[in-house]
């Protein structure tokens, strides 16, 4: 739980790759297993550490995309060409390999069904990963908190978790709105531009008491959306952000 002190909780540990799934042409999900893993809160991340033969180490953060579950966690990683860490995770790492990580980390960008809503989730690219953990948790808990996901992807084929999101959207209290920024199918009737203030006004609707917003993705997108939400009257404390850096367009 938030703020709980568990000594040694964040020691580096080895998890083994149980499965690897291709989500889109540039994105994979890794299912990792570790007996020492006690579960997580939706929205939390892990730090992943790679060590080269000469001892050189590189470390990056990855959000947990699965619903909380002891012994198991899933990460969803976008391949950044020429990146130091992500190409290793997407191309080199295979089932049965082991990966060093520490976590779960973060008590700030988290949501559980008990936190309520209405909930506005805004994602750019791989920024959907921690929000997917929230949506999976919401479904598993049978929560009917009114929830909207506004999700920006480059194209139809690059929508991560597309089929699972379609299934989840059968829930009448969950609305999923996509925008496709680079290309779109000929019969696409949805948004075709980057998320802007006008789109947020249309999608987010009226601000209600208890409204919570979680915004995740490339730093630029996150900052623009957070600014627009403040302009729309969201109290700054009701807007949680997770900047991924330049990645995730």
């Amino acid at each position: 739980m938030a703020g709980t002190a568990v000594p040694g909780r964040l020691a580096w540990q080895l998890a083994s790759v149980a499965a690897k799934r291709q989500e889109t042409p540039r994105v994979i999900s890794l299912r990792l297993e570790s007996d020492a893993w006690a579960g997580h809160l939706p929205g939390q991340h892990v730090d992943v550490r790679l060590t080269a033969e000469d001892g050189y180490q590189a470390q990056r953060s990855y959000s947990i995309s699965s619903a909380p579950e002891p012994g198991v966690l899933e990460l969803t990683v976008e391949d950044i060409p020429d990146g130091e860490v992500s190409p290793y995770l997407t191309e080199v790492l295979q089932p049965a390999d082991r990966l060093e990580l520490r976590g779960p980390i973060g008590g700030y960008f988290t949501w559980t069904a008990a936190d309520g809503g209405p909930l506005l989730l805004v994602a750019g690219g791989s920024g959907v990963a921690p929000l997917m953990s929230m949506l999976r948790e919401r479904a598993a808990a049978g929560s009917d908190v009114p929830t909207t996901l506004l999700y920006s992807s480059r194209s139809w084929d690059e929508i991560i978790y597309r089929e699972e999101l379609e299934r989840l959207a059968a829930d009448p209290t969950l609305r999923i709105v996509h925008t496709l920024t680079r290309s779109h199918p000929a019969d696409w009737a949805g948004y075709t531009r980057r998320i802007d203030a006008a789109m947020l006004a249309e999608v987010a609707g009226a601000l209600l008491p208890g409204s919570l917003a979680y915004v995740c993705g490339p730093t630029r997108l996150v900052e623009q959306v957070a600014t627009d939400l403040v302009t729309r009257g969201y109290p700054p404390a009701a807007i949680k952000t997770e900047r991924f850096g330049p990645t995730g367009g």
Binding site: I105, G107, E242
Partner: peptide, 12 residues
């Protein structure tokens, strides 16, 4: 500006 993160990222 493009590469800054939330303090959350330094929690590890």
């Amino acid at each position: 500006r493009d590469t800054r993160l939330d303090g959350n990222a330094a929690a590890g």
